[in-house]
């Protein structure tokens, strides 16, 4: 996949040189080896700093919200789905965008990589489908499919749904036996066990809000957690406040989440908070036949009313 980078740079340079766009949003090398940084470039010469590899986990759609200029954006499958969502939610106009689509074969999980080398990764290299990492326990080479993020294992759209330029040949979509096995496992528990499961899951949370900052859906000018009149939720690290935050965030993402995994990728404590949002994804598929961001111009299920909407929960 990193092989697409030359084509990405070429398209980005072309767009900036011909002044078709004001900025290009992409990834550059981060200060740490496995943490690529989102970057916004304005000069054609800066396109040399662009990179594309299995560490470009974050969702670039996050940086589109409310921009007024013309933007070139590099989009993998999930980013493109979020861009569709942004257009539907009036956060950006389609004609402002030049989308550089990149077929994606999945991103490498940062925890899986550090586990491989028994600590902090000090060097990262990619050659074709092979990833080589160095760390305290020496050098290890693995194939990308062994260290994929869990959301990439259950990905339904690796190729961008909308794009203006394509930076590579489309890749084969995954054939999934049971996308929601993880959700079903939690559904099978009783109430007490579920409560305990999430208690354990969130035990490391420090409320740093990296998850909501990385999330393209979390674009409210003032998040409910920051409001103080009224104050919806306590601001400390009381377990119940932490839980309320994650509860509510999951509800706000229902029917909008593309399961891009940016929240988990950004989490410094490796909390798998997709356990919350995945339920919303599953319910929308089962109850409304809805997959977020797969088609332009369709409003999400929680935004529309149909006479045959399921209403078994209401009396």
């Amino acid at each position: 996949m990193s092989g697409n980078i030359d084509r990405i740079k070429e398209i980005a340079r072309g767009l900036l040189e011909t002044e078709k766009v004001d900025v290009v949003i992409g990834f550059k090398k981060g200060t740490l080896p496995v943490m690529s940084e989102p970057t916004i470039i304005r000069k054609a010469s800066d396109t040399e700093t662009l990179i594309w590899d299995a560490t470009c986990r974050l969702n670039l759609c996050n940086y589109l919200t409310g921009r007024k200029d013309r933007i070139g954006i590099i989009a993998k499958g999930c980013d493109a789905r979020n861009i569709v969502g942004h257009i539907v939610e009036n956060k950006i106009k389609r004609d402002q965008l030049v989308i550089i689509g990149v077929p994606c074969t999945g991103m490498a999980d940062k925890k899986a990589l550090s586990d491989l080398v028994g600590g902090e990764v000090t060097a990262y290299a990619e050659a074709g489908d092979q990833i080589t990492v160095k760390g305290p326990a020496g050098e290890k080479t693995v194939s990308r499919s062994e260290v994929l993020q869990s959301n990439c294992r259950s990905c339904i759209k690796r190729n961008p749904v909308i794009f203006d330029e394509m930076a590579g040949e489309p890749v084969e979509e995954l054939v999934l036996e049971n996308r929601f096995a993880d959700v079903e496992k939690i559904e099978a528990m009783d109430a007490g066990a579920k409560w305990g499961y999430f208690e354990e899951l969130l035990s490391g949370c420090t409320r740093c809000y990296a998850c909501k900052n990385a999330c393209p859906l979390c674009y409210c000018p003032t998040c409910f957690v920051d409001e103080s009149r009224p104050q919806w939720v306590g601001k400390g690290t009381d377990p119940i406040d932490i839980r309320t935050y994650h509860f509510l965030r999951a509800f706000h993402c229902a029917g909008r989440c593309t399961d891009c995994g940016a929240c988990e990728a950004a989490c410094p404590m490796d909390i798998k908070m997709r356990a919350f949002t995945r339920k919303g994804v599953k319910d929308c598929v089962e109850k409304y036949g809805w997959e977020t961001g797969m088609k332009e111009g369709v409003r999400p299920p929680l935004d529309t009313f149909k006479t045959d909407d399921p209403e078994a929960f209401i009396r």
């Binding site: 579920k194 409560w195 999430f198 999951a250 209401i314 009396r315």
Partner: peptide, 14 residues
């Protein structure tokens, strides 16, 4: 309920 609230604690009605 998925997040561990017991059945019967939350009610919706119109």
């Amino acid at each position: 309920e998925h997040m561990g609230i017991e059945k019967g604690r939350l009610h919706y009605s119109w």
